[in-house]
């Protein structure tokens, strides 16, 4: 009986040793130890409340709202900011909050139906539709099908004309 207990003790010692050897993943937030488990923090640090230093912290924080674009001489991509030249037209396409052109492709019917949609149109939406129609009709032999929704301020054009429309809008500086 005594030998049995000895054996058990040895086994328990072994398991504790074994558990300490088991690989423990510290990589996630949940598996890493809490500060209370560690005890005292050995890293030296100092607390500063100077506003001068806080400026550098603030610089690292992401802005809460999308900032206004700063005009540049050259751009690395095809994106251009909306300039005041766009106001000479009868219509106006308001950029999204991320300063992108609101022209999208909607794919339906499992990839069969492709519809281009131009949103946030202000002013004379019918004039814009007519000018787009004149431009896009050259691209395709088929008659262009489009829908103007003046109430919700969008134009839908059947077919994938996203890049063509974006090109046309950037050329016209709208």
């Amino acid at each position: 009986m005594a030998s049995y207990y000895q054996n058990l003790q040895q086994i328990s010692k072994l398991t504790t040793n074994f558990l300490s050897l088991v690989q423990k993943r510290q990589s996630t937030y949940y598996s890493s130890p809490l500060l209370s488990e560690i005890g005292k923090v050995k890293v030296k640090y100092s607390v500063s409340k100077s506003p001068e230093e806080w400026k550098y912290v603030e610089r690292l924080l992401p802005p809460l709202t999308v900032p206004e674009p700063v005009p540049k001489e050259t751009y690395l991509s095809e994106w251009r900011p909306q300039l005041n030249e766009c106001l000479k037209e009868k219509y106006f396409i308001q950029r999204t909050k991320n300063h992108m052109i609101p022209v999208y492709l909607k794919i339906g019917q499992h990839g069969i139906r492709k519809v281009t949609i131009i949103k946030n149109i202000k002013g004379d939406i019918w004039a814009l539709e007519q000018e787009l129609r004149d431009f896009l009709q050259k691209e395709t032999p088929k008659p262009l099908r489009s829908q103007v929704n003046e109430f919700a301020a969008y134009i839908r054009i059947y077919g994938d004309y996203v890049n063509a429309i974006k090109y046309w809008l950037t050329e016209k500086k709208i």
């Binding site: 992401p62 802005p63 809460l64 709202t65 999308v66 909050k97």
Partner: peptide
């Protein structure tokens, strides 16, 4: 306006 222009 904040919600119309917010980043995240």
């Amino acid at each position: 306006l904040f919600h119309l222009h917010r980043n995240n």
